[in-house]
Measured scan of single mutants.
Amino acid sequence: ELREAFAKVDTDGNGYISFNELNDLFKAACLPLPGYRVREITENLMATGDLDQDGRISFDEFIKIFHGLKSTDVAKTFRKAINK
Rank of each mutant, 00 (worst) to 15 (best):
L33P: 05
Q53D: 12
G35E: 15
F26K: 00
L2M: 04
R37Q: 15
E21Q: 14
D50A: 11
V9E: 01
K84Q: 15
D73F: 07
Y16M: 03
T42W: 11
D50S: 12
I65W: 03
L33V: 14
D10W: 01
L45S: 03
G49M: 08
D73C: 09
L69A: 10
R79P: 15
L45W: 04
N20I: 02
C30Y: 09
K80N: 10
L45P: 02
D60F: 02
N14S: 09
G49C: 05
D60A: 08
A5M: 14
D10N: 02
K84S: 13
T42M: 12
G15W: 01
D24E: 13
F78C: 15
F59M: 06
S18G: 08
D52S: 13
Y16C: 02
V38T: 05
N14R: 10
H67Y: 07
L22W: 01
T72L: 08
S18F: 06
K80H: 11
E4W: 00
T42G: 05
Y36V: 11
N20D: 14
S71A: 13
P32F: 03
T42K: 15
G13R: 07
E21V: 02
V74T: 13
E21F: 04
F66G: 01
K64M: 03
A5C: 03
T77L: 07
P32T: 07
R3D: 02
E21A: 05
A28C: 06
E4G: 07
E43Y: 04
E40M: 04
I41S: 02
V9W: 03
K70Y: 08
R37V: 11
R56E: 10
L51Y: 13
R39D: 09
F19A: 12
F59V: 06
Y16L: 05
N23C: 07
Y16S: 08
F62P: 00
A81C: 10
L25F: 09
D73Y: 09
G35T: 13
A47Q: 13
K80Y: 07
K76Y: 11
V38Q: 06
P32C: 04
F6P: 00
I63R: 11
E40P: 02
F19K: 08
G49T: 08
K80W: 03
N20R: 09
I57N: 00
N44G: 12
D52C: 14
D10P: 00
Q53H: 14
N83L: 06
V38E: 05
D52M: 12
E61T: 11
T42C: 15
F66W: 12
A5S: 02
P34F: 03
L25K: 00
Y16Q: 03
A47G: 09
I57E: 00
G13K: 05
I65E: 03
C30A: 15
K76W: 05
G68R: 14
D60E: 12
E4L: 07
L31H: 13
F19R: 06
D54N: 10
N83Y: 06
M46F: 10
N44I: 07
L25T: 01
K27R: 10
A47C: 07
T42F: 05
H67W: 03
I65Y: 06
N14T: 13
F19G: 03
A7I: 15
S71C: 10
D52P: 11
T48F: 08
G15E: 02
T77G: 12
S18Q: 15
L51M: 14
L33T: 07
K76T: 14
T48C: 12
N20S: 12
K64V: 02
L45C: 05
I41Q: 03
N44E: 14
L31Y: 10
D54M: 08
K70W: 04
D54C: 09
A28L: 12
S18K: 14
L22E: 00
G49R: 10
G13P: 01
D24H: 07
I17H: 00
Y36I: 13
E61C: 08
C30T: 08
L31T: 12
L33R: 03
R37G: 05
F78Q: 15
Y36L: 10
M46P: 04
R56V: 07
M46C: 09
L2W: 01
T72N: 08
S18T: 14
F66Q: 02
R79S: 15
G13T: 02
L69W: 05
L22D: 00
D12Y: 05
F66N: 02
D52T: 14
E43L: 03
G13S: 05
P32K: 11
I65G: 02
I63F: 06
L33H: 08
R39W: 02
N44W: 07
F6W: 12
T11R: 11
I41L: 09
K70I: 09
M46Q: 14
T48Q: 13
R79H: 14
L25S: 01
D24R: 06
N23Y: 10
A5E: 02
D54W: 05
I63P: 00
G35W: 07
Y36R: 13
N83E: 14
F59A: 04
T77W: 07
F66C: 13
L51D: 06
N14Y: 02
I57Q: 00
Q53R: 08
K64W: 02
D54G: 10
C30M: 13
D60W: 01
N14E: 04
E4R: 06
G55V: 05
R79Y: 08
F19P: 05
Q53W: 05
S71P: 08
R39Y: 04
N23H: 12
G49Y: 11
N23T: 13
A47L: 09
T72A: 12
S18W: 03
I57K: 00
M46Y: 07
D54A: 12
T72W: 06
S58K: 05
H67F: 03
D73K: 11
D12F: 05
S58T: 14
K64L: 03
G35L: 12
F66Y: 15
T48E: 12
R39P: 03
T77E: 13
I57M: 03
A81H: 11
G55P: 03
T72C: 12
Q53L: 08
F78T: 15
A81K: 15
D52H: 13
E40A: 06
P34W: 03
I57T: 00
A28N: 07
G55H: 04
D10F: 03
N23A: 14
E43N: 14
M46N: 09
N83V: 11
E40Y: 03
L2G: 01
K70T: 12
N83A: 11
L22V: 03
E1A: 15
K64C: 03
A29V: 15
E4T: 04
K84Y: 12
D52G: 14
K64Y: 03
P34C: 04
S58W: 01
A29S: 09
G15H: 01
N23R: 08
Y36W: 14
I63K: 11
N44Y: 10
R56D: 04
K76F: 09
R79L: 10
A7G: 03
S58H: 06
R56W: 03
D12K: 10
I17L: 02
D54R: 09
P32I: 03
R56M: 12
K76S: 12
T77N: 14
K64E: 08
G68I: 11
D73P: 11
R3Q: 08
P34A: 06
A81L: 05
F26E: 00
D73A: 10
A29N: 05
V74M: 12
S18L: 09
N20H: 11
K84P: 15
I17Q: 00
E61R: 04
T48M: 09
F78G: 15
Y36C: 12
N20P: 05
Y36G: 12
N14F: 02
K8W: 01
K70D: 11
Y16A: 02
D10L: 01
P32N: 14
L69N: 07
E21K: 12
D60L: 03
N20K: 11
E4V: 02
V38Y: 06
N20Y: 06
S18N: 15
A81N: 15
D50E: 15
F62Y: 01
D73I: 11
D50P: 05
A29E: 07
N23S: 14
E1R: 15
G55I: 04
G55Q: 09
A81P: 15
T11K: 13
G55D: 10
R56T: 06
D73L: 08
L2P: 01
I17V: 12
K76P: 14
G55F: 03
D60S: 09
F26M: 08
F59P: 02
I41H: 02
E40G: 03
D73N: 10
A28Q: 11
A29W: 06
A28W: 05
F66E: 02
A28P: 01
L22G: 00
E21L: 03
L31D: 07
R39K: 13
F59L: 08
K8G: 05
V38L: 13
F59R: 02
A28E: 14
T42P: 01
F66A: 09
D60I: 01
T48N: 13
D10Q: 01
L45F: 10
A75G: 14
R56A: 07
G15M: 00
